[in-house]
Nucleic acid binder design. Structure first.
Length: 281
DNA sequence: ATCCAGGATCTCC
DNA sequence: GGAGATCATGGA
C-alpha cells in the first residue's frame, strides 16, 4: 500500500473526526482511522503535524485535503476568536486541532435529519445500515453513502426497517426534493445564507438546527452557529451565568460575539461541552 | 428498567 | 404565536 505524507498545521485527526460533525469513521488503532465520505474511502494516520494517507490512488488526495479544509488558516481564526474572549480560550485549548470538515451535501442532509432526537452512536448505526443497503461497495466491507439516484425508489417502510423511525417520511421527502433542479449544489450555493437556510427548511424534517448543520458542515457557511442542547448548555453556562436564553436571543448573542467565525466557535464549544469536564458538575 | 437523544411538527389556546 | 405533547428506536 502506498503512503503519502501531508503536513497540515492546527490539525488533530482524532479531534476533527470525533468532535461530532462526522458520522462515518472507524478508529483502526491509536492515531489511525478509516474515513468514508460520499463515494470515497481512505485510511490515514497522524504523527505530529504529519498526516499519512495509505492509498495507491493519488488522485483522491486533493479530495481529502479539501475534505479536511486544508487550505484554511486556523491559526488566524483561533487568534481572532481568543483576542477579546478569555472564556473561549479554554475550549480552543481543549480542541485546538479541530477543523470544520467539508462534507457531502446530500450525506449531511440525510445524516442530520436522522440525527434529530437521537443518540450519536445510534445515528452512526442507522447511517451504516443505510449505506450497506443502498450504497456502492468500496471494498473491505465499506460502503459509499447512497446517492440520491440510489435512494430514488426507497419507501418510507424501507427506512423504517432500517430503524429510522418517525424520520422515515422526512427522508423520502428529502430525496424527492434533492432530485429536483431546485436542490442542486450549484443552485443552492447561489443563495445567501439566510435564503439558503429557508430553502433547506422547506424539506420536511429540516428545522433551524438541522439546516444550520448542513450549512456549516457541507456548504461552507462558516458564520452559522448550529444550536443544539449541548451548545445551549455550554453557552449559557459560560457566557450567560447559566441563564436560559430564548432561541432568538441565543442566535443574536452568538452572532454578535463570534461574527463570521461563529461556526468554528460553535464546534470548539460543542466539543468542550460534550467531551470536556464542563457541565458535568 | 427507565431515560433520553446534535429536534421538528402537530396541537392546543 | 408560544407552550406542551408527540414522534420510533435502542444505547446507556
Amino acid at each position: 500500500m502506498g503512503q503519502t505524507t501531508w503536513s497540515c498545521p492546527d490539525f488533530s485527526l482524532s479531534q476533527t473526526l470525533e468532535c461530532g460533525q462526522c458520522f462515518r469513521y472507524e478508529k483502526k488503532s491509536e492515531h489511525m482511522y478509516t474515513v468514508i465520505s460520499g463515494q470515497r474511502v481512505i485510511t490515514l494516520s497522524q504523527s505530529g503535524d504529519s498526516i499519512i494517507f495509505y492509498t495507491e490512488n493519488n488522485e483522491d488526495l486533493d479530495f481529502w485535503k479539501t475534505y479536511f479544509d486544508g487550505e484554511r488558516d486556523y491559526g488566524k481564526i483561533k487568534a481572532t476568536l481568543t483576542k477579546n474572549d478569555t472564556i473561549i480560550r479554554d475550549a480552543i485549548a481543549f480542541g485546538s486541532g479541530i477543523r470544520i470538515l467539508k462534507q457531502d451535501f446530500f450525506e449531511m442532509l440525510l445524516s442530520f435529519i436522522i440525527s434529530q432526537n437521537n443518540h450519536i452512536p445510534r445515528i452512526r448505526g442507522i447511517i451504516a445500515r443505510l449505506s450497506e443497503a443502498y450504497g456502492t461497495p468500496l471494498g473491505d466491507t465499506h460502503f459509499a453513502f447512497p446517492t440520491p439516484a440510489q435512494l430514488a425508489d426507497v419507501t418510507e417502510l424501507d427506512y423504517r426497517n432500517l430503524g429510522c423511525g418517525f424520520r422515515a417520511r422526512y427522508l423520502v421527502d428529502a430525496v424527492r426534493k434533492v432530485l429536483t433542479e431546485d436542490y442542486t449544489i450549484e443552485t443552492l450555493q447561489q443563495l445567501e445564507t439566510d435564503a439558503l437556510r429557508e430553502k433547506l427548511m422547506e424539506i420536511c424534517g429540516v428545522g433551524v438546527k438541522v439546516a444550520d448543520c448542513i450549512l456549516l458542515f457541507a456548504l461552507a457557511r462558516t458564520e452559522v452557529f448550529p444550536t443544539d442542547v449541548w451548545i445551549k448548555r455550554v453557552y449559557s453556562q459560560l457566557y450567560h451565568n447559566n441563564e436560559e436564553l430564548s432561541p432568538k436571543a441565543f442566535a443574536t448573542s452568538a452572532k454578535e460575539r463570534f461574527g463570521e467565525n461563529a461556526g468554528f466557535a460553535q464546534q470548539y464549544l460543542f466539543h468542550y461541552g460534550r467531551i470536556g469536564n464542563l457541565g458535568k458538575e
